[in-house]
């Protein structure tokens, strides 16, 4: 995945982005499910950060909707089992279960949006380097990059096999069930063979088992400022009841 086009937060160190995202997730997910009002305030982060990364928030929101079925599957039982009355609205009693259900949906979408934002802004190679510099074992950092690169090799081989099969199948598009095992096994063997050749070529060019990604990664003042701006905001949203504060202010006015 390509990093976001040059944007206001496009130059931020991926470690800073990762740190801010983790703190955001911890702060938001630690809010009790019954405090939907507190969870909603956390939407400020993706809403503000998305335009700064040159991404329309609507697009980010749409992209995050893929997680909705899982959230609904887990959360839908809460209104059934938790029937403690929370409040009445136009004469209809709203149960605590519905409140927690809505909370699960909102925090699930916000968590996905934060992750999508992180991926879009930092890019995969930079994120692997960030993970390595944050103490992730070299074996797994190299493995991440290897899987990512060999995916295209696998897809190429699959397409070649598919074309070859189409060329000799006289218009038949479907596979017999018994052919799937040999097809997939053959695909695996072909890809393994090709990966061995690639590995030998890499070794001949000095590959020693470690892939370098982005050696010019430096922590700058901008990264510190980025963390110092967002992290206190997340802590404030977690520990200060902003809704109650605003209601009190309105009452005074």
């Amino acid at each position: 995945m390509k990093p976001a086009e040059r944007s206001h937060i496009g130059d931020i160190d991926p470690r800073a982005l990762l740190l801010v995202t983790v703190v955001y997730l911890v702060a938001m997910l630690s809010v009790p499910l019954q405090r939907t009002d507190m969870i909603i305030w956390f939407a400020a982060y993706p809403i503000i950060s998305a335009p700064l990364a040159h991404i329309a928030y609507e697009r980010l929101f749409r992209n995050s909707l893929f997680v909705l079925p899982l959230l609904v599957f887990i959360g839908i039982f809460n209104p059934i089992y938790d029937r403690t009355p929370a409040f009445a609205l136009f004469g209809i009693t709203i149960n605590s279960g519905w409140i927690s259900f809505i909370s699960i949906i909102i925090r699930g979408l916000l968590a996905t949006q934060a992750l999508l934002l992180l991926i879009r802004v930092s890019g995969f190679n930079e994120m692997c380097e960030a993970l390595h510099r944050l103490g992730c074992p070299g074996a797994i950092a190299t493995q991440l990059l290897m899987v990512y690169r060999y995916l295209s090799v696998l897809l190429e081989e699959a397409l070649t096999m598919q074309h070859a099969r189409q060329a000799r199948s006289y218009g038949k598009n479907s596979f017999k069930a018994s052919l799937w095992g040999p097809f997939v096994g053959q695909l695996l063997l072909r890809t393994i063979e090709r990966s061995r050749r690639i590995n030998m070529a890499m070794k001949a060019r000095g590959f020693n088992g470690t892939l370098s990604t982005s050696p010019n990664m430096h922590w700058t003042t901008a990264d510190t400022v980025y963390c110092l701006v967002w992290i206190p905001v997340f802590f404030s949203l977690r520990f200060i009841d902003v809704s109650a504060l605003l209601l009190t202010l309105f009452a005074y006015c």
Partner: peptide, 30 residues
Amino acid sequence: PSATPATAFMPDYDSRFAGIVGAIIVMVML
């Protein structure tokens, strides 16, 4: 549940609902 009278409009928990509505309004504005 029959703990809350059907005719009441947010008798005990109105501040929480108002908080939710307020937060949504601010986020939409943002």
